[in-house]
């Protein structure tokens, strides 16, 4: 009785795994093909969207609210607090393939640079929006940090980078 249950359990598990394997084998090429056709356009659309929102914020405030200056360069401050924003960005597997080929020949790997700078622009724009939402007049001492989502020793898994911006929001009295 127990042997039967064990046997059927193992059989069921292996069938399930096989089904996943077959599904993956069919789905993965389709997704990579999708990435080949659309991921470049998607990235361009993201960059344009970020640039538009940035221009909107600049027009609204008349200046960039962010600065990397540290310390009390203006004394009449009524409140201060930390603001942060981030975005996790990953290159598509098609872009990773281009990057891999580019890496063999050396030189500048433009596609990765494009993805990461898109993420950086986006996270800085989010910091501006977050600061406006929380009611800060200006953000000083802005720092930009980058962190990988999966450790370098792990070959498989998500290839993505987190770009994270933080600073001190200040309110003028």
């Amino acid at each position: 009785m127990l042997e039967n249950i064990l046997l059927f359990g193992l059989l069921g598990l292996s069938i399930l795994l096989a089904a996943f394997g077959i599904l993956w084998a069919i789905l993965y090429p389709i997704l990579v093909l999708w990435a080949f056709f659309f991921s470049g356009k998607k990235l361009d659309a993201m960059i344009i969207d970020t640039a538009e929102r940035e221009a909107q914020t600049f027009a609204q405030l008349g200046k960039d609210p962010l600065s990397t200056v540290d310390g009390s360069y203006r004394k009449e401050v009524s409140a201060a607090g930390v603001v942060f924003a981030g975005a996790v960005y990953g290159p598509s597997h098609w872009h990773q393939l281009i990057g891999f080929i580019n890496n063999i020949f050396g030189g500048s790997v433009d596609i990765y640079q494009k993805v990461i700078s898109a993420g950086r622009a986006e996270s800085m724009q989010r910091l501006r929006e977050q600061a406006i939402k929380e009611g800060w007049d200006e953000v000083i001492n802005v720092r930009i940090d980058t962190a990988v989502m999966s450790p370098a020793t792990v070959k498989k898994g998500i290839k993505a980078v987190e770009v994270f911006a933080y600073g001190t929001g200040i309110k003028y009295s």
């Binding site: 997704l31 990235l43 981030g86 960005y89 990953g90 597997h93 998500i158």
Partner: peptide
Amino acid sequence: TQSFKNIMGGELHKYTELLQESR
């Protein structure tokens, strides 16, 4: 779902949320 999204590239919103909450 995020690893599927990673194949096609772009932002991984769930991980952005995860890191914001954790911070």
